[in-house]
Simulated scan of single mutants.
Amino acid sequence: MRKPVRGDAAGMDRAPCVEDTFDFDIGPQALDGAIQAFGATTGQSVIYDSSLTTGVASAGARGRFDAAEALARILQDSGLRIRQVGQGALVLTRDAAVEAPAPARDPAWYYGAIQQRLGEAFCRRPELAEGRHRLAVQLWFAADGRTSRSRLLESTGDADVDAAVQEAMNGLALGVPVPARMEQPFTLLVLPRATGYAWACAAPEAAP
């Protein structure tokens, strides 16, 4: 639904000149309210889809500015920009230079992806590919999907194997961003191959 914001009818008779300045007293608030206050002050129409401003806050604009500077302050860090349409009409759009947030995934998807990447990393290390050990691990990921921290919760009793597990965990890259709201760490239990646990690689003795 298109949601226009307009000032009073008299103010809409003339598009403000670019040199015009106004006294703005728009405090921090929801972006929707800040845009309405801007329109009431300047008499300029701001046309936008209400979905663009839902849940978005604005720092507002206080002081004497021209319309462009006031809008820049109101829209700062919102990921939105203004496009001029005709005289006196402005359209609010998403800034193409700002990457849209990645769609949220079910937490189970991340566990599955981590398990697969970890299994592949284990398969590249002969001491782990055999699948003889029970491994309880915890991993933390940075926003870019790379391991930021990892921990082996129980030693295997073999320092070389423990080191190989740690190295495998530290080099993981999921290939997708991990949302900041995702609860971490991820805790996984990897069981020995003899228990029937599905390993990502064939048993070494089965290789040709």
Results as ranks from 00 to 15, higher is better:
208 P>Y: 03
152 L>M: 14
67 A>H: 01
157 G>P: 13
64 R>H: 13
187 T>Y: 04
208 P>D: 02
165 V>L: 00
141 F>D: 04
130 E>A: 05
166 Q>A: 10
28 P>K: 14
180 A>P: 05
176 V>Q: 06
63 G>V: 11
102 A>K: 04
162 D>K: 02
81 R>N: 12
63 G>E: 13
180 A>C: 00
184 Q>T: 01
19 E>K: 00
68 A>F: 05
136 A>E: 11
106 D>S: 07
45 S>V: 09
71 L>K: 00
131 G>I: 12
125 R>L: 01
40 A>G: 05
4 P>S: 00
177 P>E: 01
105 R>G: 06
113 A>K: 14
85 V>Y: 11
92 L>P: 10
174 L>G: 05
175 G>Y: 06
104 A>R: 15
149 R>W: 10
17 C>M: 05
39 G>S: 14
198 A>D: 12
113 A>L: 05
84 Q>D: 02
148 S>H: 11
46 V>M: 04
182 M>A: 05
148 S>A: 15
157 G>L: 10
46 V>L: 03
95 D>P: 06
91 V>I: 12
3 K>I: 12
190 V>G: 06
184 Q>C: 02
66 D>R: 09
55 G>R: 07
159 A>K: 15
124 R>W: 00
31 L>R: 05
148 S>D: 10
45 S>L: 05
171 G>V: 02
19 E>Q: 11
98 V>Y: 10
70 A>M: 14
100 A>W: 10
111 Y>A: 06
11 G>R: 13
181 R>A: 13
130 E>F: 04
80 L>R: 07
56 V>H: 07
158 D>C: 03
59 A>V: 12
134 R>T: 12
144 D>K: 08
115 Q>W: 02
133 H>C: 02
132 R>M: 04
5 V>A: 03
206 A>S: 14
124 R>C: 01
126 P>W: 03
